[in-house]
């Protein structure tokens, strides 16, 4: 039997609204899951392109998160730095099924590599 394409992480409401939770990936960067005020869920590597700050610890507003280290604003949907800053954090495909949060297995493996 082959491994599934998606990893089941937990219930959507385990992620606070306008907040974040992380998935620990052994041997690699954590993955940060974000939930916006509108209830959309996004997944990014938990690493700012600037100085590798933990994006999961930032303030979520609109469709972006402000990095806790130097206030870079990172788009949750593309991982791109917004405004004048340049840089990009890898995103991880995420979907919601029956209230469960699923993230792409292949992308998660890549984070561990």
């Amino acid at each position: 039997m082959s491994a599934p394409d998606w990893l089941d992480i937990g219930w959507v409401d385990q992620i606070p609204v306008r907040g974040s939770r992380t998935v620990q990936v052994a041997g690699g960067d954590d993955i940060a899951l974000f939930r916006t005020a509108e209830g959309k869920v996004f997944a990014l590597l938990d690493r700012c392109p600037h100085k590798h700050g933990r994006l999961s610890q930032g303030i979520v507003h609109g469709g972006a998160v402000a990095c806790p280290l130097h206030n870079w604003r990172i788009s949750l949907s593309t991982g791109e730095a917004l405004g004048e800053d340049k840089g990009c954090t890898p995103t991880v495909p995420v979907k919601i099924d029956g209230g469960r949060v699923l993230i792409c297995r292949a992308s998660t493996l890549k984070a561990a590599a």
Partner: peptide, 16 residues
């Protein structure tokens, strides 16, 4: 508690 604990842990070796 949700501020501190990761929501899940993923270990590729175990999974494989």
């Amino acid at each position: 508690a949700a501020h501190h604990a990761p929501m899940a842990r993923f270990t590729p070796q175990e999974e494989l």
